[in-house]
Design a binder for these strands. Sequence first.
DNA 1: TTCGTTACGGTTGAC
DNA 2: ACGTCAACCGTAACG
Length: 354
Amino acid sequence: MTPEPAFGEVNQLGGVFVNGRPLPNAIRLRIVELAQLGIRPCDISRQLRVSHGCVSKILARYNETGSILPGAIGGSKPRVTTPTVVKHIRTYKQRDPGIFAWEIRDRLLADGVCDKFNLPSVSSISRILRNKIGNLSQQSQYESSKQSSHPPQPTLPYNHIYSYPTPIGASGTKVPTPPGMHSLPGHMAMHRIWPSSHSVTDILGIRSITEQQISDSSSFPSAKLEEWSVINRTHFPPSASSPIVNGVQDKPPHSIEPEAKYTQTQSGLPTVNSYVTAPSIPAYHPPTPVSPYMGYSATTSAYVTGPTWQPHSGSALYHHSCDNIAAPLAFKGMTAHHRDAIHPHAHPITASAL
DNA sequence: TTCGTTACGGTTGAC
DNA sequence: ACGTCAACCGTAACG
């Protein structure tokens, strides 16, 4: 039972990381912030003790997608049981409750819903009937209750990643933000959207506006890093008129290229290319015999990582650092332009949290 | 020196 | 319940 890596590993720069897991959003955000301020990636790398490759990657992604969030880890694309297929199967079943799986299979083919390459096997269809459709009478009940929970989201997103237990109650109500916590900028929204995702709300990034949680850095190396992020739709009301996250949101990087260039890309990080030296950057503290618990020294970042991981270090300092991490406070000192660039759609409430 | 790229070892979660 | 697979991760090293 101590599945979680107690501390993570220490990289060459003395920074702590957990192999295979994303950096905390706080650090990701900080990387973008510093870049926005014109600090060179190499300096950011040293200051935050994150490998330059990682800094490069995060900045590149930010430039490309407008999101600082990591991609969705795990899961797999639906191979044959796409939403469309499921929908058709459901229809067939509704029309003829006694229909056999093999008959459904034939119909899928006959109706052109599937071709011979993506035609689900009989067993797959059976599984769909069992798991996704089940008792049709219960289905409708399920549907209605589900819709009441997530009105704007008719379907559960495929691979609803990063949706570990969140403060969003089943009713969609937002759990009160813990004291001292701020919402995360909209661009931190994350969710997996396969190219095949058909949900408009997914596309708009409405679903997963996330928010830095207290647990964010405190539980860094915990088994569930994603828990850092929680949805906070209150601050980003789903609305077609409020393009939450640049209208981009986390498409898998690969799917991005050929697509429209997101406007955010243009304004997103214009200053990154105009590097300046960063005299204001606090001297780099050598990794020294730092235990994996080095912390990003307070000066610029005020981040305390690692060891702060000690469960519930719960000190005032800790929480304070969380504040800085999570959010708008991080924009302190930034010009409106900077702020907009990093968080183009900051909601007034978020801003007022300052 | 800086930074883009990639192999690597790792985690995750749908199937 | 478990294994497979394919997605992602950050680091380290190369150029």
